[in-house]
């Protein structure tokens, strides 16, 4: 058990800081917000490190319980969302091709269609869109489930049974979401690239499938594959950690679960966008 891991949020001082009305002074207000932000970053960082440590140290512990739970989470954050992602991938292909073909034809730059698809879909929109959709469908559900469990005393029940709540509740969600987002991104990209060509064909773009495929492979590098895997796994890890943290790591009452859900959603979006910006810098530097 890891009781007291995030104790900084359980102290009366921290609760006071979080709930006290903001004072009228601007400097106090800014200072208090900054203090809250730092506390949140500290708590999330500690929770992420604890989760990583539990994943590594308890990999083979209780595998008859934790591994099936992980498989269930992979299905939940991946396989079960596939129909929705097939629809989104078709739409994404239409969106990118529909907007770009007319301009590329006008500029005589239709040879760059594959390059545009790689830059927009593979490097940027695919991973980020997948992460945000999984956050909306599964991440928010995580906060509600764990927050309700926390409010109803189920976490105390786990501790009474000497079952580590991070190992039993968080690890399957983190692993499941990291794998789920990676897999869904791959399907989303493949679907968008395929539907993109279909829309181009329907718009009478003079581009043969072989040429389109050659453009795509020419624009892709080994770094794209490596960073795609890294980025999507990072998105999954971040969303799972933030949503589990807000549902589990702080004492909650039932009426606070909805607020925790909103906070977790907003922080997940911000964190994912920041990580995405970091990857853009890596692409540009490479």
């Amino acid at each position: 058990m890891q009781k007291g891991n995030v104790s900084v949020f359980d102290t009366p001082q921290a609760r006071f800081a979080f709930r006290m009305p903001l004072p009228p002074s601007l400097t106090h207000s800014v200072g208090r917000r900054l203090f809250r932000f730092l506390l949140t970053v500290q708590g999330l960082g500690a929770f992420a490190l604890i989760t990583l440590a539990v994943i590594l140290t308890k990999f083979r512990v209780a595998r008859h319980v934790v591994w099936p739970a992980t498989r269930q989470q992979i299905a939940r954050a991946g396989l079960n969302l596939l129909p929705m992602f097939l629809f989104i991938s078709a739409s994404l292909g239409l969106l990118v091709i529909g907007q770009s073909v007319a301009w590329l034809t006008r500029l005589g730059a239709i040879n760059y269609l594959g390059t545009i698809m790689v830059i927009v879909v593979v490097r940027e929109l695919g991973p980020l869109l997948t992460a945000l959709l999984v956050l909306a469908r599964i991440g928010t559900a995580n906060v509600v489930e764990l927050g309700t469990a926390r409010a109803l005393g189920e976490v105390e029940a786990l501790e009474a049974l000497a079952i580590d709540p991070v190992h039993y509740l968080v690890v399957p969600r983190v692993v499941g979401m990291a794998i789920g987002i990676f897999a869904l991104t791959v399907y989303l990209i493949l679907g968008a690239l395929g539907s993109g060509y279909l829309w181009a064909f329907l718009q009478n773009v003079p581009l043969r499938p072989g040429e389109y495929f050659r453009q795509l492979t020419g624009a892709l590098t080994g770094l794209d594959f490596a960073l795609l895997a890294l980025k999507t796994s990072a998105f999954g890890f971040i969303i799972a950690v933030i949503t589990c943290y807000h549902g589990l790591a702080q004492p909650l009452r039932l009426e606070e679960v909805s607020y925790a859900t909103v906070r977790a959603g907003a922080q997940s979006v911000i964190a994912c966008v920041m990580v995405d910006a970091l990857f853009i810098v890596i692409y540009l530097a490479a």
Binding site: A62, H64, A149, E154, A157, L158, L161, I163
Partner: peptide, 28 residues
Amino acid sequence: FESGQLFNHLTVWENIALPLRYHENWSK
């Protein structure tokens, strides 16, 4: 616990089996 504090996402069978399966690493 006074009100049981059961795990609502598990069945009664799974609730009772959980400590055994977790600590002894037993299959169902």
